[in-house]
């Protein structure tokens, strides 16, 4: 084993401190007894209790989860379909235009997307609420899904689909039985991406949310304007915890899959 040189140790420490120190402070202060965020007055979990009794936050959390779930699901379906057509559809009139247009929302300033959606909803006479946020989030996260899925599809061996057709599948069956199971990891990561994008979106949600439905980021943002409370620290700590657990589970399962794949390859070689 090679040792880390002192220089490496210093760079590692500085780099990680830069990334994680702010979060660490936030976590520490969520266990602060005091009402004041900046003054340490002993350990306490009382703010977590407060948080659990705060209806407004809980409502907002529930709205956020529902919005994220529905918008990412719809975005995954639409984004996968768009990616499939753009990668597989061969040449059709306007293909270049379409594929350019699908990526445009990625670089569009969110304020503009939000504003145009707001105008559209007002024009349609839609009451702003969960539905409008879901629609808005679907619109912008769909592009991300289609980027993720189409980058998987371009490396997908086309002859697998041809083999399915050759063996009697209709094109729809070939997609369902062969293409989809194989690109599933990309579709799932597209869904996860859309889900997280929706979870932490503030700008577009504030344009399209109404008084009946507020998402957590909006709630936190408006609460912070009145001053940071330890309650918000507690809420953020919970979110950091959830994300950390998610990342750990994901990396463990990828590692397991890799170890298993290597074992399979070895087994194949032995029986060769």
């Amino acid at each position: 084993m090679s040792r880390l040189s002192p220089f490496n140790v210093v760079s590692l420490t500085l780099g990680f401190a830069f990334l994680y120190l702010p979060m660490l402070i936030l976590i520490v202060y969520s266990f602060n007894e005091s009402q004041l965020v900046t003054v340490w007055a002993g350990f306490s979990t009382k703010w977590y209790g407060e948080l659990a009794r705060n209806e407004a936050f809980l409502d907002a959390a529930w709205v956020t989860l529902r919005v994220a779930f529905f918008s990412s699901t719809i975005a995954t379906v639409l984004g996968t379909m768009a990616a499939y057509v753009l990668v597989r559809g061969g040449r059709f009139f306007g293909r270049t235009l379409f594929s350019g247009m699908i990526y445009a929302p990625l670089v569009m300033p969110e304020v503009i997307t939000g504003l145009s959606l707001l105008l559209l909803f007002i024009g349609l006479g839609l009451d702003r609420g969960i539905l409008t946020i879901v629609l808005a989030h679907t619109t912008f996260s769909m592009c991300y899904v289609s980027v993720v899925v189409s980058s998987r599809l371009v490396t997908f061996d086309r002859s697998l689909e041809e083999a399915a057709l050759d063996l009697g599948c209709s094109p729809a069956e070939a997609f369902r039985l062969v293409t989809l199971p194989i690109i599933a990891p990309a579709v799932i990561s597209g869904w996860l991406l859309a889900f997280t994008l929706s979870l932490d979106d503030l700008v577009i949600a504030s344009f399209t949310a109404g008084p009946s439905a507020t998402t957590l980021p909006i709630k936190i943002f408006s609460a912070v304007r009145l001053g940071v409370t330890p309650e918000i620290n507690a809420l953020s700590t919970i979110m950091i915890g959830i994300v950390t657990v998610g990342v750990i589970i994901a990396s463990i399962s990828t590692k397991r899959a890799r170890v298993k794949a290597e074992a399979d390859e070895r087994m194949a070689q032995r029986t060769a």
């Binding site: 061996d157 002859s159 697998l160 041809e162 083999a163 050759d166 063996l167 194989i182």
Partner: peptide, 20 residues
């Protein structure tokens, strides 16, 4: 006649086995 309705089967150069 589309490929799925032909009494013809093909063994692909790359084998094209379904990995899943």
């Amino acid at each position: 006649v589309p490929p799925n309705q032909r009494a013809v089967n093909m063994m692909f150069q790359s084998y094209a086995l379904f990995p899943h």
